[in-house]
Design a protein around this nucleic acid. Structure first.
Lengths: 148, 148
DNA sequence: GCGTAAATGAGAATCAGTCTTATTTTGAGG
DNA sequence: CCTCAAAATAAGACTGATTCTCATTTACGC
């Protein structure tokens, strides 16, 4: 799927008019290697453990640049911090179900819903760029077994 | 529509097991009086101007209590702060289109979309409590007239 | 290899929101 | 209306996430 070698990542960065610094490469590599929705502190800590010598400021600045170039997606689960994941193509777009009890995040994609969103935009002569759709509630594991 | 006299607001608060303090009444009155999506600082400033003598801490604490009682809704437009509006009944539920150029917020309601959300939840054995659905983009006024 | 614009590191600064503590207020009971 | 305990408040200290500042380092076109 996504580029993983240093050489490939370098190309990707250059293609987006971003200088290919070791910090940005390490950051992209990290996001490519996980399915988790990492926050800035987790990213900082992980890179620190990898002896990558990346400052917190650089983590934030790099993420900002990568999000602007749509190489990374910024997520907001409503807990007061931003999370990030490797950006997926339109064909991999998804939204999230968030369990308020255990914090689990379930990704989903629903074509009808996306279509409805477009039709709402049309009604209002609105040109959409992105959207956020989070459904909060209780996941199957946290739901008492006797309830429906 | 919603209660507006001090007496009525007092009743509403008491009905929700909240002591009817002057600060909470002023806060509810303010939210009842506007269609805007105010943030905590704006609320604090407005009450300060009204000589209501409400501290910032009280604004936050009161909002928290009112949100817990569903008298007020908390919104997150992704700009790093929470916004609040008078809570509307289920029949008044709506989502938001947010213009990234002028900041305008357009409210909408789409039954199919709500239905799709429920069906997604069912598929995942997920019990929803609330959801946030924000579509970001460009509103009609900010869209260049020659584009579709 | 050189030079410069861009990126980074370290830590100060900011900003929304929360917490602490002493003081004030509400509302139940008489 | 008066009393009192529990709850709420004011003021400002504190926190945690994020941004900014500025001196230093690095990428990369030539």
């Amino acid at each position: 799927m996504a580029a993983t070698s240093n050489k490939e990542l370098k190309k990707v960065l250059r293609a987006h008019e971003l200088k290919a610094t070791s910090q940005r490469i390490a950051l992209l590599k990290l996001l490519n290697s996980t399915q988790d929705h990492l926050d800035a502190e987790e990213i900082y800590f992980e890179l620190y453990n990898q002896q990558k010598n990346v400052s917190r400021a650089t983590v934030y600045r790099s993420l900002e640049a990568l999000v602007a170039q749509e190489l990374v997606s910024k997520l907001d689960f409503g807990d007061g911090r931003s999370r990030y994941e490797r950006s997926k193509g339109d064909d991999e777009h998804h939204d999230h179900l968030i369990c308020e009890k255990c914090g689990k995040v379930i990704e989903f994609f629903n074509l009808e819903m996306e279509a409805q969103q477009l039709s709402v935009c049309e009604e209002h002569f609105f040109t959409p760029t992105t959207h956020t759709m989070y459904i909060f509630g209780t996941c199957a594991d946290c739901r008492p077994p006797n309830s429906t």
